[in-house]
């Protein structure tokens, strides 16, 4: 074994067996990414080149027609709707979740533990039960197919309370005490001292909840009554063979272009903020 390899292994705390494991692991990782590669590759193919017996990983002829066809549908409008819905719902969910999480962790009041148990237990309820009553309520007050309808039910995501509660449980009491000494009230304490220091859980909760909201499917499917209020996942779902009607004419290449457009925002967000995703999930669940 050459010297440099020995040194490299030493530095990385690896041994010879790892030389075998490494390529296998990378191969599996590549395999894991192949569906995405196939999706993007198909989206640039001519419809005639899609259903072939030979597999073309890189299209022999490239076309942008599929994307142009997708944009014949109000994709931009759907994207804007999704953005508004996901951003606002995430903002309120994280802000209110931080307030509640702080109160549950640092403040003392009767009913506090009961509230927390209810929050946690709600995770076990199949939410699909609630969808019809909720739909009726929104139709009744005239908010069907509106941003309110898309946003309001997404605010009560317990995950955000949970992650902030975990964070504030380990929050050093000295900071609070010092501020209390200066005569800061509970709200001042939260907004001036606690919240600014909770940047890490805030970002972690934001990215995760944003992704959940961006991908949310069943509720937007039911509550949007016209094309102009659809969100991106709902609009694009019309291209799926089982649910939709459009592939009959458009074929897989257009559908793949549509899902590529749909996936890009969440994948980009994830790539750049990966650290926070991982932090958020582990903080939100492990540290008891």
């Amino acid at each position: 074994m050459p010297q440099w390899l020995e040194r490299e292994l030493e530095e990385r705390r690896l041994n010879r067996l790892d030389l075998l494991i490494w390529p296998v692991g990378l191969a599996v990782a590549t395999l894991w990414a192949l569906p995405f590669v196939w999706m993007v590759s198909t989206s640039f193919k001519f419809p005639a080149d899609v259903m072939t017996q030979d597999i073309e990983w890189l299209p022999s002829r490239v076309t942008f027609d599929n994307y142009i066809k997708v944009f014949e549908y109000p994709v931009v409008r759907w994207g804007i709707n999704s953005l508004i819905q996901a951003t606002l719902a995430t903002f309120f969910c994280v802000l209110f979740g931080a307030m509640a999480g702080y109160a549950l962790a640092r403040m003392h009041f009767p009913g506090r533990n009961l509230l927390f148990v209810i929050f946690l237990a709600s995770l076990m309820i199949p939410v699909e039960v609630s969808v019809i009553p909720l739909l009726l309520a929104f139709v009744k007050v005239g908010w069907a197919s509106s941003y309110q309808a898309l946003i309001l039910p997404a605010i009560g995501n317990v995950f955000s309370v949970y992650i902030f509660r975990q964070f504030f449980l380990t929050f050093p009491a000295e900071l609070e005490d010092a501020a209390k000494m200066d005569g800061a009230g509970p709200f001042n304490l939260f907004f001036r001292i606690a919240l600014p220091l909770a940047r890490a859980p805030a970002i972690a909760a934001s990215v995760i909840i944003f992704t959940l909201n961006w991908n949310s499917f069943l509720w937007p499917l039911l509550v949007t009554f016209d094309e102009s209020m659809k969100t991106l996942p709902v609009g694009v779902a019309a291209f799926t063979p089982v649910v939709g009607t459009r592939t009959q004419i458009e074929g897989y290449s257009v559908a793949m272009a549509a899902v590529t457009i749909l996936s890009i925002p969440s994948l980009l967000l994830f790539c750049f903020l990966q650290r926070y995703f991982i932090q958020g999930i582990s903080q939100g669940s492990i540290k008891q």
Binding site: F36, M39, V236, T240, V259, L267
Partner: peptide
């Protein structure tokens, strides 16, 4: 991080 719609299309294909 991708949505159910993506699963529906990519995996059916």
């Amino acid at each position: 991080v991708v949505s159910a719609t993506v699963i529906g299309l990519v995996w059916v294909w």
